[in-house]
Amino acid sequence: MNQDMAEPILQMDKTSKSFGGVQALRDVSFDVFPGDVLGIIGPNGSGKTTIVNCITGFVKPTSGRVYFKGEDITGRQPHKVADLGVTRTFQIMRPYYSLPAYKNLVIPLFSPRAKRTGGWRGGGRLGNRQTIAIDILEEIGFERDSYIPFKKTSTLPTGYLKRLELARCLALKPEIIICDEVFSGLSMSEIASMVPLIQRLQDEGITIVMIEHRLRELFQVANRVMVLNFGQKLTEGTPTEVMADEKVKEAYFGSEEVEEVMIYA
């Protein structure tokens, strides 16, 4: 929160990424401080997901560096980045469809990091993974009484799958969660129940980076917002500053009378 006090936990330094002739990112730099909720917004195709992929090692940046707690993690393999506690969710959910929901969490709980840290709540000790998995799921909103944790993942509605994505990160006892559009595809009431969850994670000291299109809900939780357009950083600031920025309005709507639209967005 207090940017003068703290060292940035995550730093992106002049990172570029091009896929063939398409330049997805162009010299993007930003810092994330411990306890932050940083929102990244931008029109479709502006390179938001590429940022996530560059940080978590799913793609290698063409140039530039990524630092986690001052350590260079550029181009490290995804599992090594996750092992440091930099976790992500996927925009298109990637659960293990053939397993019941709670067994989805056995996999992150089996990772070296979870063994070291003991999972989300664990103090370094890991008990029965399936029991812990059900506890984590219940805590993030799977109703144990209606046997939802035991249902096959392929039968669950989107809202639960999004939570399952978050739960996979939490099982690793993360330092940072990078949420790639956790609100998209959810109904209004599902989003409404998701917002307190994000706030709770923030209270627990987890740094959160949120990529989002749902601006209204994002601005409820984010303390800083970065705007991307065509792979370039447009601006960065508090939600109110960003809302007022002319460049942002132009990037999103290309017109002037946008104020009402943004309010109803």
């Binding site: 799913f58 599992h79 990637r94 293990y96 996999i107 089996f110 979870a114 996979r168």
Partner: peptide
Amino acid sequence: DMGLIFTAVMDNDQAVKASGIN
């Protein structure tokens, strides 16, 4: 639990990578 990792690799290897497993 270890056998489940194999099923998970078959289902979705990206998610297994994101779970910090080689």
